[in-house]
Nucleic acid binder design. Sequence first.
DNA 1: TATTCTGGTTACCATCAGGTAACTACAAAA
DNA 2: TTTTGTAGTTACCTGATGGTAACCAGAATA
Lengths: 125, 125
Amino acid sequence: MRDEKFCASNCSFTRAIGTIGNKWKPIILNVIGTRTIRFGQLDSIVPLISRKVLAEQLKELEEDGLLERLAYKELPPRVEYKLSEKGLAFLPILESIKEWNCKYEVAPMPGEADKKSRINYARTL
Amino acid sequence: MRDEKFCASNCSFTRAIGTIGNKWKPIILNVIGTRTIRFGQLDSIVPLISRKVLAEQLKELEEDGLLERLAYKELPPRVEYKLSEKGLAFLPILESIKEWNCKYEVAPMPGEADKKSRINYARTL
DNA sequence: TATTCTGGTTACCATCAGGTAACTACAAAA
DNA sequence: TTTTGTAGTTACCTGATGGTAACCAGAATA
């Protein structure tokens, strides 16, 4: 999921893209935002993602220092995720992507059809 | 390459990620920057990308309004690419990703080994 | 006693991304 | 006459991605 060749580049930008440049990580970071959230919540809030992929992404985000994972030794288990300082510092970038897209996106809904089939990953969901 | 489900979301942010949230597009946009560049130049400047994938990405970027394509009716053909207003407006976001990564990236080169195998996508390359 | 609850992991399988090599057109140069 | 150069496209093939379903522990609940 992480691109190993990109991550091995001597270019900082390329390494950054190798780390967070896939489709799920920005979505997950955006969904978490400033809150603390459990695995099961993420699994139900982020649509279309499988537990397997979600677990992979969370593990990589933690390894890359964007995410903090708190596991409570209980049964049934409880695990909480929240953004680290590095992860929080990435949120303004996500905000500027939103602004950029709102400003320049053309014809977001040709025909206004099948609104119900659409997905919503907004943090407010 | 574009994620069709994301692009069909009713969430603007999700659509944005569906459009530019893959590993090649930020790299290509960064390499082009503010200059005008030909297909063959991109093909040789961006390492590890195949002509096939490069052509796909450029076509999608053009369709999504980030890129302008100027084809001269000559033989052999000449085609020039440059960022549109929308594409240029995305460059500051790439800059902030660079700053973010420089600030928070940890241990970019464990052991300082095999520097020569590293890739460089910097615009100055 | 059987079920539920959580946060995963594993095996298996299908789809897809992406690489390579060959091919196109046509003009100019060798 | 053959080669070169540009900007792709196409067929083919392989390796990665990602989905599904089953399974785990062990306490609490029914």
